[in-house]
Design a protein around this nucleic acid. Structure first.
Lengths: 129, 129
DNA sequence: ATGGGGGTTCCAGTTACCGGAAGGTCAAGG
DNA sequence: CCTTGACCTTCCGGTAACTGGAACCCCCAT
């Protein structure tokens, strides 16, 4: 099938599919006219990528997952490890964002937000806390 | 003062300071030998940037904040608006990350993570849920 | 004069793509 | 048969916010 069909089936833009091929993730066959020709298996792998990317795995992590996926002999513990460390990363990011939010909320609360120039937010940013 | 002194005072790498100059944020004077020469005021602005960036404001937002900072006539409401919308952004991101984490946690929980090849995580990614 | 630790510029790379240009291909309609 | 429009192709450049490295200059002490 052509790239637009694969795109529709995987919910990945054609540009992205070509990009994945360029970086060696999923390589399609070519038809006589030079068009890319996707097999069922290609589409499966692309859909796999789509899902893994949307779950926050980086391209390089996806590359690992894909090779684990294709290796029928791999241990499930490898995949689980990758997933658990991803969860840790996410937890860290959430914590960071929460503390950011706290700081900004405090600043906003102290700022009356009217048309006068006095502004505690800027004062804080300037180090005049 | 030289760039390394400014760097020490603001906790910004010299590379970053030069970058900020390149994109027109804080421009230092030049000494006779061509070295950048930072004033107290320059350092204040750099420190302001450092703090604002670490609070999650983008470069372009920092540019706005900096011009609001330099404009003694601006209304504090402008700054407060920017801050509140930043808080909204952060909230959204936290929500996204939480739902990501939920999904991954569920997947990890169902995976026994041993040395056998059977792996529910990969099964899910492959759409065999 | 030489060695080390500043400084300078410019180029390239990072992540994961997106937009657009220039041009080949294909199916349908007149 | 020709045109039109929707596909497809490749390649180039841009995004955010820097970071690393190369090649070179400057200043001070030995």
């Amino acid at each position: 099938m052509n790239i637009s069909k694969a795109s529709a089936l995987t919910d990945l833009p054609p540009k992205t599919i070509r990009y994945y091929e360029e970086i060696g993730l999923v390589k399609a066959a070519r038809a006589a006219n030079g068009y890319r020709d996707y097999s069922e298996n290609d589409v499966h792998q692309l859909a796999f990528l789509q899902r893994a990317r949307s779950l926050g795995f980086s391209i390089e992590e996806c590359r690992s997952l894909l090779s684990l996926y294709s290796d029928s002999d791999r241990a499930s513990s490898e995949v689980k490890e990758l997933t658990l460390s991803k969860i840790d990363e996410i937890d860290q990011k959430i914590d960071e964002l929460k503390s950011l939010k706290d700081t900004l909320s405090k600043l906003a609360k102290n700022c009356h937000g009217n048309d006068k120039p006095d502004c505690p937010i800027l004062d804080d940013l300037a180090g005049r806390a």
